[in-house]
Simulated assay, not measured.
Amino acid sequence: MLLTEKLKDTNIILASQSPRRKELLAGLGLQFSTISLNIDETFDRNEFKKEQITEYLSAKKAKAYTDIQSNDLIITSDTTVWVDDESLEKASNREEAYEMIKKLSGKRHSVYTSVTIRSLEKEVTFSDETQVTFADLTDDEIYFYIDNYKPFDKAGAYGVQEWIGYIGVDNMNGSYFNVMGLPTHKLYKELVKF
């Protein structure tokens, strides 16, 4: 039985306002609604590394939704960029975005996305990693991207589906959609099992 048929009577709720996550979930052929959750996204940088960060935050978002009903299925997600033993989340201004992209320039980094699926009966959290290698980027290229695309809502201050992905990504090992913010291949399999 296809996933769309299996979940046709399920109220799927994507707890994200990310246009990219909405687009990717819609790409699976599912009907869903969206909500916004305001949670404190701080974490202990000594305690959490790599996908532990995104797993912690994704599960925290899922637990923050308290109005869950019997046929609800909540989907939450979190993404981080990991380079030089450091997590790069969202940049808060132009200079922070520049510093982040400069750190990625000419190097390989990992993008971790974790997803939590929660119902009244159970909850599962899983992760995916994609390794991305950036070309050497000039300051002019970095500032052009920041000034024209305003990537302040994205982990690592870049969107792979935008101009910088077209000119800056030399190599990728893993899921492109994971870098966009939702590992659709894994989400599909987990929803089938769930």
Rank of each mutant, 00 (worst) to 15 (best):
L2E: 15
D85V: 02
S77H: 04
W82M: 06
H185E: 13
M172S: 05
W82D: 01
K63V: 02
Q17G: 12
D153Y: 03
K63T: 04
Y145K: 08
S119K: 09
K107Q: 09
Y176F: 15
E5G: 04
E86V: 01
K60M: 02
Y149V: 00
Y98W: 14
D40E: 12
Y176P: 01
S114F: 05
K49N: 12
D67E: 15
Q131T: 03
E99Y: 14
I142P: 01
V169C: 07
M100L: 03
S127M: 04
L182S: 09
H185K: 14
R108V: 03
S18A: 08
L57N: 04
A15W: 05
S119C: 10
Y158K: 03
I164M: 10
F32A: 07
S119N: 11
E23W: 12
T66E: 15
R94F: 13
T80Y: 02
M100V: 00
K102S: 10
E96T: 11
Y176H: 14
I13S: 01
I146H: 07
T116C: 11
L137W: 10
S33D: 12
G159K: 04
S105T: 00
S77M: 02
L88V: 00
I53G: 10
G168W: 07
I101E: 06
F144I: 00
L88H: 10
G165R: 13
T133I: 02
D128I: 07
S36P: 13
G165Y: 12
T113P: 06
Y188V: 00
F43C: 06
A64S: 12
T138N: 01
P183N: 06
V160H: 05
N148L: 07
K8C: 13
D147P: 02
L182K: 11
Y65A: 01
E51P: 09
D40C: 10
V111N: 00
Q31E: 15
V124M: 07
Y98E: 08
K22L: 13
D139S: 15
I13N: 03
I117R: 06
T76N: 02
F152L: 07
L30F: 11
T80A: 08
A91W: 07
S175D: 09
Y158S: 01
V124N: 10
I13G: 03
E123P: 11
T80I: 10
K50M: 12
M180K: 13
T80D: 06
T184A: 07
D136V: 09
L191E: 04
K103T: 04
N38Y: 10
M172R: 12
V124W: 03
E121N: 14
A26S: 15
L28A: 11
G181H: 09
D85I: 00
R20L: 11
L57V: 00
A157C: 05
Y158D: 03
N171S: 13
K61T: 06
S127H: 08
E162L: 03
L24R: 11
T130M: 05
E95Q: 15
H109Q: 06
N11G: 05
K63S: 08
F134N: 11
R94Q: 14
L37I: 13
I74D: 03
D72H: 14
K154L: 03
S175R: 13
K8R: 14
G174C: 04
